[in-house]
Design a protein around this nucleic acid. Structure first.
Length: 365
DNA sequence: AAATCGGGGGC
DNA sequence: GCCCCAGATTT
């Protein structure tokens, strides 16, 4: 489909979408999940929940949401929090730039808006970490503003209802869907309507071959269902496979402590801590050489089982060694920590957990 | 437009 | 294994 055909489809889409709000809201009223961020949708809470929920399932967010707000109950407290604290609160949730941007935005909200999130779509969009979707979600859910919130769920539901084979990974298609949805928003319940579309996508209109059309409130008006092609939708460009990287990871141990290293503040896992590691699969002899270059005298080396960690766009194939060494000064950016200090104050990404989980045994020897 | 940026749950 | 998730930002 070229651009003109896409634009010409919007009126047709709007016509079918007009049938959506009534049955969808009735279904939402009776079937919506009870979620922590729905009980008291003040703007700050909605904001935090939406950032946590970016590319992240509801079940994964639940353990983090209340803990985060208990530690940082106001936008002012978030603005004044240390990077160490916010990364520890985000540890394991992934996409760590989300929380770094959240803090940056909190500082801007304090400085520019007296600590109150602005009830304005464009102003929200200008804050770090808030894009078109998140601005729409906050605007509609927290402030009742008539703005669509088009996420992956909504694109899937809409593609099926409309039986659209447009590629939803294209920005132009997202914009066209948003435009069509903007025209049919029920003005008195925009927040509920946006959440209901997402809820339907998460609970009923499931991805791939799993849609539960038999229990869908939109089955009667869904063109994809009528044509029995819902499972083929939405159309989405294929993504390229992740690239494998070999690494050698070290549990460096001395006097009951383990060495950690601070990662750079840009790039993958920015600002988090890590176990010292080198590119490639090193032999014990080669590793001892690397450690010697760091001023570390090895006492004993033992190999651990290999581990693998899959990111979205790369794979770490990790060889692991436990290395006992003479207690010694560490290079710049490295620290000796006890196990309890690691647990309480240092954000260590899950990529290292296969090795880090051995620490209780190893540090007691 | 494509690449980067995590981690996990469900099948 | 594979898919993809209440996406945003950088290149």
């Amino acid at each position: 489909m070229n651009k003109n055909n896409l634009a010409s489809q919007i009126p047709e889409w709007q016509e079918r979408l007009t049938l959506v709000p009534a049955p969808l809201l009735a279904w939402y009223d009776k079937s919506a999940r009870v979620l922590p961020w729905r009980s008291n949708p003040v703007p700050y809470h909605v904001w935090v929940s939406e950032i946590m929920l970016q590319q992240t399932r509801v079940e994964a967010v639940k353990p983090y949401f209340d803990r985060f707000l208990s530690a940082l109950p106001t936008i002012e407290s978030l603005a004044g929090a240390s990077e160490e604290q916010i990364l520890k609160l985000w540890e394991g949730l992934g996409y760590y730039n989300r929380v770094r941007n959240l803090k940056k935005a909190a500082i801007q909200v304090v400085e520019r808006y007296s600590g109150q999130l602005p009830a304005d779509f464009e102003a929200l969009c200008s804050l770090p970490g808030i894009g078109v979707y998140t601005a729409g979600a906050i605007a509609s859910i927290a402030f009742g503003l008539p703005v669509p919130a088009v996420d992956g769920n909504v694109l899937r539901v809409a593609s099926r209802v409309l039986c659209s084979r447009e590629d939803i990974s294209k920005e132009a298609v997202k914009k066209a869907m948003a435009q069509a949805l903007a025209a049919i928003l029920p003005k008195d319940r925009v927040g509920d309507f946006n959440q209901a579309l997402m809820e339907l996508g998460a609970m009923v209109c499931l991805p791939g071959a799993a849609p539960r059309c038999e229990s869908c409130p939109l089955a009667a008006i869904c063109e994809g269902h009528r044509q029995s092609v819902a499972e083929e939708l939405p159309v989405k460009a294929a993504k390229k496979p992740p690239k494998a990287e070999e690494k050698t990871v070290v549990l460096l141990l001395a006097e009951g402590k383990v060495a950690l290293r601070k990662r750079p503040d840009t790039g993958l896992l920015a600002g988090l801590w890590e176990l010292p590691n080198w590119e490639g699969h090193l032999s014990p002899e080669a590793l001892q050489e690397c450690l010697g270059d760091c001023g570390i005298n090895v006492v004993r080396i033992s190999q651990m089982p290999d581990a693998r960690h899959v990111f979205t766009h790369r794979i770490w194939e990790m060889r692991g060694y436990a290395v006992y060494c003479e207690s010694s000064p560490l290079p710049e950016g490295w620290v000796w920590v006890t196990l309890s200090e690691l647990r309480e104050g240092y954000a260590l990404p899950g990529a290292f957990s296969a090795f880090a989980k051995q620490l209780p045994k190893l540090t007691s020897l």
